[in-house]
């Protein structure tokens, strides 16, 4: 089974990117395998308050500082850009492959973890991550990678004031009967809407 990263960029993305990203949602192969949970982002809702960054750094490092956060909100005030970047748990993961010391491992839950004893803070994983979702901790020079706070309730999801963050998948639903029942306009709209629903954390097919 091969899973791809969840690409959820899209507020203003064009058709092409939509298409490309849509593939990445498709869980190919064995559907009975346990579904790995990931953090999904609805960037259209993000207001750039960085409350997630603060509470992430506090929960993991005991201090308040965006530089110690595992979620990064990219901002450009002039053009109104607020976009949370976080580990997408790619499989295969470029960061794991790039690590010269085998210091990154993936658990059953899909979470990529750092083996402290093996990590020398070289930063190869930072370079390798295609999303810029990994940084080194300023204090210990260890990679900061989202661990979903262990799984059930990431603090960023809990603290986000606008519902821009969720765990995926929250539920599974097959909408293909609707797809068959209605006309082209509906089918097109449904395809688009499914993308939106996935950003809500719902697993729809």
């Amino acid at each position: 089974m091969r899973r791809y990263c969840l690409c959820l960029c899209s507020i203003s993305a064009g058709e092409e990117i939509f298409k490309k990203n849509d593939d990445t949602y498709t869980e190919t192969g064995d559907h009975s395998a346990p579904m790995v949970r990931r953090l999904v982002v609805d960037p259209s809702k993000c207001v750039g308050c960085r409350y997630c960054e603060l509470w992430c750094s506090y929960k993991h490092e005991g201090v308040f500082s965006p530089s110690f956060s595992r979620i990064i909100v990219v901002k450009d005030d002039r053009i109104g850009l607020d976009y949370p970047i976080v580990c997408r748990m790619c499989d295969p993961a470029p960061c794991i492959e790039a690590c010269p010391n085998d210091a990154l491992t993936r658990g059953e839950d899909g979470i990529i973890r750092v083996v402290d004893a093996k990590c020398n803070g070289c930063g190869s994983c930072v370079e390798a991550c295609p999303y810029g979702a990994i940084r080194l901790s300023p204090r210990l020079r260890r990679p900061l990678i989202c661990d979903l706070c262990g799984g059930d309730e990431p603090i960023c999801v809990k603290k986000c004031p606008t519902n821009a963050l969720r765990l995926y998948p929250l539920a599974e639903e097959d909408l293909s009967e609707n797809e068959k029942a209605f006309d082209k306009a509906y089918r097109y709209a449904l395809e688009e809407h499914k993308r939106l629903m996935r950003r809500w954390g719902l697993h729809v097919r």
Partner: peptide
């Protein structure tokens, strides 16, 4: 208006 924006660490954007 197309979106909200917030000050740092504010939950009332």
């Amino acid at each position: 208006n197309v979106k909200n924006r917030a000050c740092f660490s504010c939950i009332l954007p």
